[in-house]
Nucleic acid binder design. Structure first.
Lengths: 229, 229
DNA sequence: TTTAATTAATCAAACGTTTGTATTATATCA
DNA sequence: TGATATAATACAAACGTTTGATTAATTAAA
């Protein structure tokens, strides 16, 4: 499925993408099914037909996003990979994931902090999978993630930082788009940033240093001052 | 105002606090005025009477939160303060701000990523104030925040990390509360974390090292590899 | 000091609109 | 002809807001 039909991609895909674009901008609860249907160019009834309801779209978006996000982190290496190389793979993979799935990723991170009853079960499963992965990874760096202070800082640390950038970038490009829709005279203030491969090469480099070096340095200092374990 | 009256705090304050508690849990758009009024123990009409509408409550919450957040950062020192000391003050102040205003702070950070038309003007003002402050602060550390790569990483970096922890803590304590409401036999799995002064002393220490040391190290490495400016 | 006028606070009820979903009917294609 | 896909419409529930009446508190005039 999801292929062309009558010169258009299939309706299910159109609903998915229209909903994602709206959710990421205003949030799940602020968007109505009529708005989604209009944007996707389908009848309202199609949403319940394909997704079983409004929340079905969100579920699909989030399951897709988490699957990719988890894979990006799990495939960064294993215990036989040197820690610094593993961290570099990790950062590079997560950045890649965000570049390829910006909308879904932002929805995922922004929905994670909300209490949405229909998602309770899924969220618990994701949380478990994620913390198992992190525990194992940090152990290799010599960081005891079961220490509440370390856990409080490093749980979601990397993803949070990268998410921050892509949210910032999303906002930037949204404003640029609305500004371009105005009269041309107002364009002069718009500094154009090229978010290309070169940009992300430097970005990943900087982040790896900030992350890996910072973790090693900070946790060692902590051990020296407050004693081991 | 906001004092005791008939043994209860005044209705405006009750609405404010009830709304904040609901907003932080499910998000602004998912909460209705009836739910707020019920939780606050007032009549629905009181919301429009005191706040001019549902969005008026959110505005008040956010303006209050930003004011305190900005002050926490602006009062960390000036150009005559040694950088490392200034960073320590900054981290300590922001952590203090979050400890004293957890609910408002989380609402502020979570609402910042949403397009809420009524808030457009306010958000632009806040963004300007914040970036002026950061530009000046990073300059003292030798970091050129106008470089898009540096800006992409360090804009909202510190606040994002700390927000992450308090969101994590909020989630933890929410789940604990609901678990305690269950039968006693299920309590055994609940590891109790004391988020006291000692905890945050270590937390601030670790964050300062992660932050300050990481920034200096990463930006220097970046300059060496990709050249200055 | 009592009475009258004014303001502030609260309430139940209803406003018109929009919400997500369900039903039913009609095309489209095998 | 039977299954799949699309559409128009209906529906109860919930939405944010407004209304007009009522009470309590305050101020002004007598």
């Amino acid at each position: 499925m999801a292929t062309k039909n009558n010169g258009q991609i299939d309706p299910k895909r159109r609903i998915f993408e229209a909903a994602a674009a709206l959710f990421v901008n205003k949030g799940y609860s602020a968007i109505g099914v009529r708005e989604i249907a209009k944007e996707a160019g389908v009848n309202i009834a199609m949403i319940n037909y394909y997704f079983g309801g409004k929340s079905g779209i969100l579920k699909d978006i989030l399951e897709d996003a988490f699957g990719k996000y988890y894979h990006a982190q799990a495939s960064a290496g294993d215990n036989s990979t040197p820690p610094e190389e593993r961290v570099r793979n990790l950062v590079a993979n997560v950045v890649q994931f965000f570049r390829e799935n910006t909308t879904e990723a932002l929805i995922f991170f922004n929905s994670a902090v909300l209490d949405i009853p229909e998602l309770k079960g899924l969220k618990e499963k994701w949380s478990k999978m994620y913390s198992d992965l992190m525990l194992e990874l940090f152990l290799q760096m010599g960081v005891e993630l079961k220490d509440p202070v370390h856990a409080s800082i490093y749980n979601g640390f990397l993803g949070g930082m990268i998410k921050n950038h892509f949210q910032y970038r999303y906002e930037l490009e949204k404003n640029k788009k609305t500004a371009e829709a105005c009269v041309e005279g107002d364009k002069k203030e718009l500094k154009h940033i090229e978010f290309d491969d070169l940009f992300y090469q430097r970005y990943v480099d900087l982040l790896v240093h900030q992350y890996f070096h910072g973790v090693i340095y900070a946790t060692q200092k902590d051990k020296m001052k407050y004693g081991p374990k």
